[in-house]
Simulated scan of single mutants.
Amino acid sequence: MNSEVSIISKSPKETIDFGKELVKTTRGGEVFALIGELGAGKTQIVKGAALALGFQGEVTSPTFSLVHCYKGEKHSLFHVDLYRIEKGESSLYLYLEEILYSGEVCFIEWPEKIEKWLPAWTQYWEITIISENERKIKRLR
């Protein structure tokens, strides 16, 4: 996908489908930073990505556990949720570095809290709530 991508999702299913499409050509090592307010659909995108990678179970936000790992057929997917973390909390760095450079696919919610640690190849995606079911999903860089 190029850096000019912007779509309108009209339902949670379309947001999940976007997540599936996002990882269609992954080789491993991709990092996706998802920016958006609570309820924007970040976890729906991760759900689609996990399904596309072959994960068969339930995908939920790791708000209280920080990280969930979903084992796929070819790659695992790390889902990191930093909502409850203080910005720049350095004690996390070694733990997150291991995940970010694992060679697996990684999705990070609330990435602005660790932006200085994210790899240069990180894809930044902004999800904006338009209405109850509609979301604008835009690649920032």
Rank of each mutant, 00 (worst) to 15 (best):
E86W: 06
Y70G: 01
K138N: 08
H75C: 02
Q123Y: 13
Q56F: 09
V59H: 08
Y70N: 01
K87F: 09
D17R: 05
T15R: 06
G48T: 01
Y95W: 11
K74T: 11
V31H: 00
K138A: 10
A33H: 12
Y95M: 06
T25W: 03
S11I: 02
P12I: 12
E73T: 13
E134Y: 03
R27S: 15
F32S: 04
T128G: 07
W110V: 12
A33P: 15
K74I: 12
E89P: 00
L118H: 06
F55L: 05
E126F: 01
E104C: 06
W125C: 07
A52S: 13
L82W: 06
F18N: 10
K47F: 04
K10L: 13
I7G: 03
T122N: 05
E112V: 14
P62K: 02
T26L: 02
Q123P: 03
S61D: 14
F18Q: 11
W110Y: 07
A49D: 08
W110T: 13
W125D: 09
E115A: 14
S91Q: 10
I114C: 12
E37R: 12
R139Y: 09
T25A: 03
Q44W: 09
N133I: 13
G29W: 00
H75F: 14
G36S: 04
G19M: 07
L34V: 07
E14N: 05
S6D: 04
Q44E: 15
